[in-house]
Structure formats: structure tokens, C-alpha cells
Write a protein that binds this DNA or RNA. Structure first.
Length: 667
DNA sequence: GTTTCCCTAAACATCT
DNA sequence: TAGATGTTTAGGGAAA
């Protein structure tokens, strides 16, 4: 049973612990206990849980829908669910929505923030949510209206006809009603699995079956006792029910709709119990003026009819006289059905569009496994809040150089890193380094984008400065040249001059990795790669657990190709780990790039001309090195070393440059 | 709650 | 003297 499976899936989610747990409270015996909803499988137990007016139900339903819609968006954005998840089965590679919901640890906080923080994106998504939810609400409202209409018609017809005991027709009609409600529930579940509606936390005591119901089964049964089953009406309802089935499965391209078995006229065990679990004595509500689906604000809500009715009784009379079961009413019902169907189709289209938009905008959210995909590592970097107004439409535009199509969320890593995408996020840039996003690769791929779009690059000032310096043949730049590089490479830096220039200067002065060298043409800035790498957090980026597992699993000298590539792609501090330097490549990189800097420096210094590039130490001018803060190892370093470090670490530096290129020759 | 990193802003000094 | 350059400090946000 779909409801059961869905509830099982959702039950384990955090959200399910509260709001969605109502599913598990269904009186199918699978619930954790009697609980508040345990006794709702009977009409008598419905009253025990308090009354909930239709308005409250609607409000509750809307809130739930919004809640899960947000979760859905989050999941879509994080790539934990995919459009293909619409298929009925949950593919092994797919993470069920509920799993994604229940596993916040699978969604890194960065991802969460990336997805949810951009206000424009949220506004867009909320708009989509509003559209879909509105359509959903309307759809169910129509369903309820029609259902109730038919019931009232039956009721009136029954009053004019002699009572008959409950027979097969009545049972069939009840089954139709149950199917109707079951359809609603299934549809809700479908949408919930799609994330379009939600069962928010804090509503755990409300069973699912209370959500879409404006007409409760007990009420219907009571009505039915006075109704003589009229065959035409029943057929009509049955046909509508079948149509509904068709609508549900057709118009909604959702997975659960396909997962759910075809609606049969045999109430399923779950459905049966579900259907017979009225949550409230809705009779009072149904009889309350204004509560009738087709009666509101003192007038008849029948499509095309706005007849004023003083009270519900008059309305019922009007309903039975003007909207009795005839060809006209039937045709109107048909039209209404088509309207609903169209709305559902539109809902499905909007949903697909939303998914496509999400897929396009978010591409491939950050993978928690930086090792497995050394290339095109997506960055969790977020970007400056100041870029939120980058585009007039308020949407995060992808880089222009990106040829990223609208790809499924489960597709492989995109050319565009998420750091680019999340340029609308809050200002947090160091994340790009944490995920070892190769800045040169990022820039190479999205050069045109950054050059033209007024989007702040998702890199720290230090990274950008370093990149600017390293891009030059002699690995040195004057401050003004750094400025020019910034303005040349990024449209964003063509404005806010004072801010970022000050930041550049501040970074140059603050970070030890930037060494000021007196040149013939003035002061130039170079990069002390050793200091730069040392500056990085000496811990593995990405999932610590993954790192630990990889370390323990691979063991000494058991690095595979991808891992080595990842190593090269990753930060050098990783290589500094004694357990990681057993491969020749890694150790070589390490020795040159990190641990043995001094010796290597001595080597290079001895034959100072080893580097064809102009080395700072080749200058005869006195090297002006900014005073380093009191630090043992740094103080022990000679000034010349400081000035020439960027040359001495040529190998790792080059490797760094290589790694940032989309090559895979590191294995 | 603490630490670290980063950004931003500002003040100040020095140099051209 | 003005502007550029360089240094330093402080405050706050975010993440670990």
C-alpha cells in the first residue's frame, strides 16, 4: 500500500517525527501506539481528538504543504532527489525524499545554507509553491464540492424515495467515497513525496486522513442511511471516481502516482481503515452555514450560479431544484472535472518546470566526497550577499560560459561549480577553499561569466590575489597590477573600488603568504606558496568520516588513481599527513611542497637560475619583507627564503596550477 | 561557547 | 598636498 510505504518512508524522517508521523498513526496497526490518532478508525473515535473546522483543516493543510514544499526544494537543490524519482520505484541510486529529509547529516550545512539562503531563489520557489499549492487546494476543494454535491443530491433524492436498507449499491457508493478520499490521500502523498505538500512538524497528532477531507466518512454514512441509492447517480459518481483516478495518474507525472496501485473498487486494508477513520464529527460543520463547499457568502457556489441563499436550508433547496441531477448539472460536473484535470496537468507542468529550474540553477550540489570526483569539484562556497542584486530578475544566473543544460539533479557534476551558482548566497567565500575548488579551474570555466556578470567570485581575496600573481609569468605583481587583474577578470570589482581595494591591500599585508619584494619597478607582491598552503586548514576537506575511511581503507601506499588525483586536487596539508605520503607522487609533492621546503629552497638557491623566471632573490635590490609576526618557524627562516619561497615551491605550485586545469594526468 | 577564518571598515603612516 | 601604497586594528558573520 502506498500510504503505508510512504508513511514508512517518511516516518523515519525528522519531519516525520512530528508532522508526518501522522501517517504512522494510521489505524492500520502499524502505528507506534494508540496515541492520539490511534482510535480514529471509527466514527466514535473521531470526536476524541477535538474538532477541526474546515477552515482549520485548510489552514493546516496549507501549512503542511508549505513545509514539505520547502523540504522538497531543499532536497531538489541538494540533489538528493531527482526528477526521475517520480518513478514509482525508488531506484537504488536515488535517495528517497524522506531519507533526504531524515538525514540532515547527508546535507551539509553549507548545502542547506546554499540552497535556502538566496532570497531570490526562495522567492522564486515560494512563488512556485504558491502556484502549486493553490492549484492543489483548488483541486481538492473541487473534489470535495462535487462529492458533497452528489451526496446532497442523493440525500434529497432519498427523502423523496422510500428508504431502503443498505445494499450493494450503498456499499459501492461508500467505496466510491472511500476511493475518492483515498485518491486524495494518495495524491497528497504523491505530492508529498514530490515535496509539493508537506506534513510539517508539530502536527503529528493529526492523521493524514484528516487533511483533505471536508466530508468525513461518518458523515457520509449518516447521510447515506437516508439515501436511496440511485443508480444513475451512483454511476455518475463512479464514473467521476474513475475519471479522478485517471486524472491522478495522468495529470500528475509524479512518482507516487505511478507507484500507487491502480485504484480498485476494493478498499485496500490500509485505505479501508483509513477511510473509516473520521477525525471529527464533521456533521456539525457540514450543516453550518457557509461550510458547504458549494455555499459561501450567502450564495451558491455552483459554477455559473450565484444565487443568493439566506441559509443553508434554502441553499439545499436551491441546490436540489436548480442543480439536480440532470444533463446540465452533469455536463457542468464534467466541465469542472476537466478544469480540475487541466489544473492538475498544469500543476504537473509547473512541478516539472520547477524541477528543471532547480536542476538548472543548482546543477549538482556539493558532493560530500571530494575524493571521488577530483575534477570539477563543486564548491560549497557561497558568495557575497552583495550579489543578491546581481540580476534584475533576482535569479542566480549561471555562468555564461557554462554549457550546462537542464540536467537531472542526479546527473554527474556539472561544469559549473555550485560556488558559481551560489554566488547569491551569503558572503562566505572560504568554503571554496575548503572544498578545494581549483580557483583557476573555476575561473577558466567561468571566465566569461565573471568577466561580464556582476557576480562576486566565490573566492577569498587571498585566493584571488594569489591567482592573479600566479597567472603572471614571473609570479609577481604590483599592487596596481593586482587591481587591474581584479577589474579585468571580474566585473564585480569594477565597482565598489574602495571596498575591495582596501581589502586587497589588507590581505596583502595581513597574510604572510604574500611577500612584498622590492623590484626595479617598485614593490611587487609575490606568493609564498608554503605559507599559503600552510594557511589552509590542516584538515581534510569534505567529510571527515570519508577521509578517515579512505585513510584506513587504503592504507599505506594503496592510493588508487582517483585518490591520487584527488590528492593532487586537494590541499597540500592533506599530503602533509604522514599516512598519506607513501606514494611517490604524494611524497614527492609533499617533500617539495611542504615538509622539505627548506632543503629544497637551499637547492634552488644554490643554482638560483634553475627557474627561468625572474626570481625575487635575483634582484640585487634589498628585499623588503614585511615583518612577520613572532612565529618560531617563520622567524627561523631567512629573509631570502621568504622572498624566494614562491620559486622554491615551483613544483607544487605548478602542480597546483596543473591540478586546477581539467586534466586527469595526475593519477 | 570557543576558536578560526574571512570580510569590511577605518585610521594611520609612508612614499611618490 | 593629494593620491597611492602599506600596516594595523576592530567589529561582525559564518563555520568548525
Amino acid at each position: 500500500m502506498m500510504v503505508e510505504s510512504a508513511s514508512e518512508t517518511i516516518r523515519s524522517t525528522p519531519a516525520a517525527q512530528n508532522g508526518v508521523s501522522s501517517l504512522s498513526n494510521q489505524p492500520d496497526g502499524a502505528g507506534p501506539g494508540p496515541g492520539p490518532g490511534g482510535g480514529r478508525d471509527g466514527a466514535a473515535g473521531a470526536e476524541a481528538n477535538g474538532e477541526m473546522s474546515p477552515v482549520e483543516l485548510l489552514h493546516f493543510q496549507q501549512q503542511q504543504a508549505l513545509q514539505v514544499a520547502r523540504q522538497f526544494l531543499l532536497q531538489q537543490a541538494t540533489g538528493l532527489s531527482s526528477p526521475s524519482s517520480n518513478e514509482g520505484k525508488q531506484p537504488a541510486v536515488q535517495v528517497p525524499v524522506s531519507v533526504a529529509m531524515m538525514s540532515p547529516q547527508m546535507i551539509t550545512p553549507q548545502q542547506m545554507q546554499q540552497i535556502l539562503s538566496p532570497p531570490q531563489l526562495q522567492a522564486l520557489l515560494q512563488q512556485q509553491q504558491a502556484i502549486m499549492l493553490q492549484q492543489l487546494q483548488e483541486y481538492y476543494k473541487k473534489q470535495q464540492e462535487q462529492l458533497h454535491l452528489q451526496l446532497l443530491t442523493q440525500q434529497q433524492a432519498g427523502k423523496q424515495q422510500p428508504k431502503e436498507p443498505l445494499g450493494n449499491k450503498q456499499l459501492a457508493f461508500q467505496q466510491q467515497l472511500l476511493q475518492m478520499q483515498q485518491l486524495q490521500q494518495q495524491h497528497l502523498l504523491n505530492l508529498q513525496r514530490q515535496g509539493l505538500v508537506s506534513l510539517p512538524p508539530g502536527q503529528g497528532t493529526v492523521p493524514l486522513q484528516t487533511l483533505p477531507q471536508a466530508v468525513c466518512p461518518s458523515d457520509l454514512q449518516q447521510l447515506w442511511k437516508e439515501v436511496t441509492a440511485a443508480q444513475p447517480v451512483e454511476d455518475s459518481i463512479k464514473q467521476e471516481g474513475l475519471d479522478l483516478t485517471t486524472n491522478t495518474s495522468n495529470s500528475t507525472s509524479f512518482s507516487a502516482a505511478k507507484v500507487s496501485p491502480p485504484i480498485s473498487h476494493h478498499p485496500l486494508p490500509n485505505g479501508q481503515s483509513t477511510m473509516h477513520t473520521p477525525r471529527r464529527d464533521s456533521s456539525s460543520h457540514e450543516e453550518t452555514p457557509g461550510s458547504h463547499p458549494l455555499y459561501g457568502h450567502g450564495e451558491c457556489k455552483w459554477p455559473g450560479c450565484e444565487t443568493l441563499c439566506e441559509d443553508l436550508g434554502q441553499f439545499v433547496k436551491h441546490l436540489n431544484t436548480e442543480h439536480a441531477l440532470d444533463d446540465r448539472s452533469t455536463a457542468q460536473c464534467r466541465v469542472q472535472m476537466q478544469v480540475v484535470q487541466q489544473l492538475e496537468i498544469q500543476l504537473a507542468k509547473e512541478s516539472e518546470r520547477l524541477q528543471a529550474m532547480m536542476a538548472h540553477l543548482h546543477m549538482r550540489p556539493s558532493e560530500p566526497k571530494p575524493f571521488s570526483q577530483p575534477l570539477n569539484l563543486v564548491s560549497s562556497a557561497t558568495l557575497s550577499k552583495s550579489t543578491s542584486d546581481t540580476f534584475p530578475d533576482g535569479l542566480p544566473h549561471p555562468p555564461t560560459s557554462a554549457t550546462a543544460p537542464i540536467t537531472p539533479l542526479r546527473q554527474g557534476p556539472s561544469v559549473i561549480s555550485s560556488s558559481t551558482l551560489h554566488s547569491v548566497g551569503p558572503i562566505r567565500r572560504r568554503s571554496s577553499e575548503k572544498f578545494c575548488t581549483p580557483i583557476s579551474s573555476e575561473l577558466a570555466q567561468n571566465h566569461e561569466f565573471y568577466k561580464n556578470a556582476d557576480v562576486r567570485p566565490p573566492f577569498t581575496y587571498a585566493s584571488l590575489i594569489r591567482q592573479a600573481i600566479l597567472e603572471t609569468p614571473d609570479r609577481q605583481l604590483t599592487l596596481n597590477e593586482i587591481y587591474n587583474w581584479f577589474t579585468r577578470m571580474f566585473a564585480y570589482f569594477r565597482r565598489n573600488t574602495a571596498t575591495w581595494k582596501n581589502a586587497v591591500r589588507h590581505n596583502l599585508s595581513l597574510h604572510k603568504c604574500f611577500v612584498r619584494v622590492e623590484n626595479v619597478k617598485g614593490a611587487v607582491w609575490t606568493v609564498d606558496e608554503h605559507e599559503y598552503q600552510k594557511r589552509r586548514p590542516p584538515k581534510m576537506t569534505g567529510s571527515p568520516t570519508l577521509v578517515k575511511n579512505m585513510i584506513s581503507g587504503l592504507g599505506y601506499g594503496a592510493l588508487n588513481a582517483s585518490y591520487q588525483a584527488a590528492l593532487a586536487e586537494s590541499s597540500f596539508p592533506l599530503l602533509s599527513s604522514p599516512t598519506m605520503i607513501n606514494t611517490s607522487s604524494a611524497s614527492a609533492m609533499l617533500h617539495v611542497g611542504h615538509d622539505d621546503v627548506s632543503s629544497t629552497v637551499e637547492q634552488v638557491n644554490s643554482n638560483g637560475s634553475s627557474s627561468p623566471r625572474l626570481s625575487p632573490q635575483q634582484y640585487s635590490h634589498p628585499v623588503h619583507v614585511k615583518e612577520e609576526p613572532a612565529e618560531a618557524e617563520d622567524d627561523s627562516r631567512p629573509v631570502s627564503l621568504m622572498a624566494t619561497t614562491n620559486q622554491n615551491v615551483t613544483i607544487p605550485d605548478d602542480r597546483d596550477l596543473e591540478e586546477e586545469l581539467p586534466v586527469e594526468d595526475l593519477s
